[in-house]
Amino acid sequence: MRISTKGRYSLEALLYMVLLPQGEYSSTRTIAENTGISDGYLEQLFIPLRKAGIVQGIRGPQGGYLPGRPVAEITVGEILRAVEGPLEPVACVTENICPMKDTCISTHTWSDLYHEITDCVDAISLADLGAAYYALDKMEYAI
């Protein structure tokens, strides 16, 4: 499974928002200037993120976006599903479309992989990403 720029850029934009003071709105222009992601692309990404309740927006000159609910409740999996769609490696894992599903020898492999992926990304919150960023920032490097 490969995560596209939609998923990577959505996570990066949301991490940028997490690192702002709580309650501070950020425009897509500001996020774009600080992350190097195109402002127009961010606008496209924020449409499904807003529909999923992951971000909320305020219009106007002082408007912008902020997380739609507490960042500890927003998971990486939720973000990826909002912008990427389903995370299953093959459609037959969650859809009953394969006529050989009952006799297929690889079904269990795909199902196990799907559950491992979802368990992993659903266990990481935006708050976790913010904490990891601050931990990296405080590390001392020695050569």
Rank of each mutant, 00 (worst) to 15 (best):
A13K: 00
E78T: 06
V18G: 00
I47N: 04
I124N: 09
M17V: 10
K138G: 15
Q44T: 11
I37F: 03
Q62W: 11
R59A: 15
I3N: 02
L49R: 01
Y114N: 13
L113W: 01
H108L: 11
Y133C: 05
E140R: 13
V90I: 07
P48E: 07
E73Y: 08
P99M: 14
T5G: 08
R29G: 07
T5R: 12
S4Y: 06
L15Y: 00
T94D: 10
T30K: 12
G57A: 14
S10P: 03
H115W: 06
L45Y: 05
S10K: 04
I37T: 06
E43Y: 05
E43H: 08
L136N: 14
L15A: 04
L136S: 14
G36S: 04
I47Y: 08
Y16R: 06
E84F: 02
I3L: 12
Y141I: 15
V83G: 01
E78I: 02
R69P: 02
K138L: 15
R59C: 04
Y141T: 15
G130N: 06
E12W: 02
E88N: 00
C98Y: 07
G60W: 06
M100P: 00
P21V: 07
Y16S: 04
L14H: 00
A13W: 00
L66D: 08
A72M: 11
M17T: 02
L20G: 08
N96Q: 13
L113P: 00
T30E: 10
D122F: 07
L129W: 04
E95P: 01
Y25Q: 05
V93N: 07
I31T: 02
Y65L: 05
A32V: 01
G60C: 09
T107L: 15
L129N: 08
L42R: 04
V71M: 13
I143G: 13
R2S: 01
G36N: 05
L15T: 02
S27T: 14
